[in-house]
């Protein structure tokens, strides 16, 4: 892989993503941890741009940083101790092992088909920029992903109705 501006950008965004991730798990200050999470997500958005998916990058910033991470900060404010966690490490070895094994599987699952099965090494950087219109057509066309799209919509609707039911006053007349 030759070294050019795109490689440099990839390295920078990867470092931001990974560094943010490390910040999330090592910070004893929960609020700072949330900010690190946003930094990490921002790096992910940069990687999406390098992958020629600007739409996903914008959605990443809008949904994950603008909405979900903000909700995280609210959740953090509700915890008892924000700034000085009494325990930094828990000893849930079984969980740690399971998470680690899952991570190894994921990495192997991504790397194996690309690097081992194909003789040509595929660069992560694509030349084809898919437009938003392409994405929209793919989501609703019969040959595309209309079924997963509809299933996801149904799931979201169900979740929304569930949230309303839970949030409803119990005393309310039904």
């Amino acid at each position: 892989m030759e070294f050019n501006a795109i490689t440099l950008a990839f390295i920078v965004f990867s470092l931001v993503t990974l560094g943010g991730g490390i910040g999330v798990v090592t910070c004893i200050n929960l609020f700072r941890g949330t900010i690190w999470l946003m930094v990490s997500l921002f790096g992910m958005a940069g990687l999406f741009i390098l992958l020629s998916a600007p739409f996903l990058a914008a959605v990443q910033v809008l949904v994950y940083i603008g909405a979900i991470a903000i909700l995280f900060t609210f959740a953090v404010m509700l915890t008892r101790s924000i700034t000085h966690l009494p325990v930094r490490f828990t000893r849930l070895w079984a969980n740690a092992f399971a998470a680690g094994a899952f991570f190894v599987l994921l990495v192997a699952g991504v790397i194996y088909p690309v690097w081992v099965v194909n003789d040509a090494v595929h660069f992560p950087v694509s030349d084809v920029t898919r437009t938003t219109a392409d994405l929209g057509v793919a989501l609703v066309s019969g040959n595309g992903f209309v079924l997963p799209f509809e299933v996801a919509s149904l799931l979201l609707t169900a979740a929304m109705i569930g949230a309303i039911v839970i949030a409803r006053d119990v005393d309310d007349e039904l």
Binding site: P54, F55, A58, V59, V61, L62, I65, G66, A67, T129, T131, T132
Partner: peptide, 14 residues
């Protein structure tokens, strides 16, 4: 940008 309007919404959420 092809996603100009979406970019505006995303950036404003910061």
């Amino acid at each position: 940008l092809e996603i100009g309007a979406l970019y505006f919404v995303a950036v404003a959420s910061l």
